[in-house]
Deep mutational scan, measured.
Amino acid sequence: GKMTGIVKWFNADKGFGFITPDDGSKDVFVHFSAIQNDGYKSSDEGQKVSFTIESGAKGPAAGNVTSL
């Protein structure tokens, strides 16, 4: 299901970062391709987002990331 969290950091040059879930669980990796914004796929530190957890090649990753 959908979770909410805060972007801990995001490196636009490398195209990835981490989200800290609101439920206190482990930080989740986020790749720019998962960000659902139109246009520039980046996110700012401290941005509140909703997301799903997908199982990626390197473990859990955020999917369907949407700014709230």
Rank of each mutant, 00 (worst) to 15 (best):
F16P: 01
A61H: 14
I6A: 05
G5D: 02
T20K: 13
S42Y: 13
G46K: 08
G56R: 07
F18D: 01
I53M: 10
Q47V: 11
A62S: 01
V28S: 00
G15K: 05
D44A: 15
Q36E: 10
G5C: 08
T52K: 04
Q36S: 12
I53H: 05
H31A: 05
T20P: 02
G1L: 13
N64T: 06
N11D: 12
L68N: 07
D13H: 11
D22M: 07
K14M: 12
K48L: 10
D22R: 00
S25D: 07
N37F: 14
P21T: 05
T66W: 06
N37I: 14
G24A: 03
D27E: 08
G56E: 07
Q36T: 11
V65E: 02
S42Q: 09
G24N: 06
A12C: 14
G17S: 01
F16Q: 00
G15H: 04
S50A: 09
S67A: 14
F51Q: 01
G59N: 06
S67T: 12
G39Q: 10
G17F: 06
T52D: 07
G46E: 06
D23Q: 04
E45K: 15
W9H: 03
G24M: 05
S25F: 04
K14G: 05
F16H: 03
F18A: 02
I53K: 05
D44V: 15
G59M: 03
V28N: 00
G17L: 05
G17A: 04
V65C: 06
F51M: 02
P21L: 04
K26F: 08
N64E: 07
S67R: 12
N11Q: 03
V7A: 00
D27Y: 03
S50T: 09
I6V: 13
F51P: 02
K48P: 09
Y40K: 08
V30F: 15
S42D: 08
G5N: 00
V30A: 00
G46P: 09
G63H: 14
Q47M: 12
N64W: 09
E45C: 14
G1D: 12
V28P: 00
V30P: 00
D27Q: 05
K26S: 11
F16Y: 14
T20F: 04
V49N: 01
S67W: 15
G39F: 14
K14Q: 07
F29Q: 01
N37Y: 13
F51Y: 10
D38C: 14
T4L: 07
T52H: 07
V49L: 03
A34I: 04
K41L: 14
F10K: 00
K2H: 11
G5K: 00
K14Y: 08
P21Q: 02
V65F: 00
A61Y: 15
V65Y: 00
A61M: 15
D27G: 03
G17Q: 00
V49W: 04
V28F: 03
S42T: 14
V30R: 00
G17N: 03
A34F: 04
G63M: 14
W9I: 02
A12Y: 13
Q47C: 14
G15T: 05
F29S: 00
I53C: 08
D23F: 06
V28C: 07
E54N: 09
I6P: 01
T20G: 03
S42K: 10
S43I: 15
A57G: 10
S55E: 14
D44Q: 15
S43E: 07
I19P: 00
A62N: 02
L68H: 08
K8C: 09
M3S: 07
T66Q: 11
A61D: 02
G39V: 11
T52V: 11
S42R: 10
S55L: 14
G59T: 02
F10V: 05
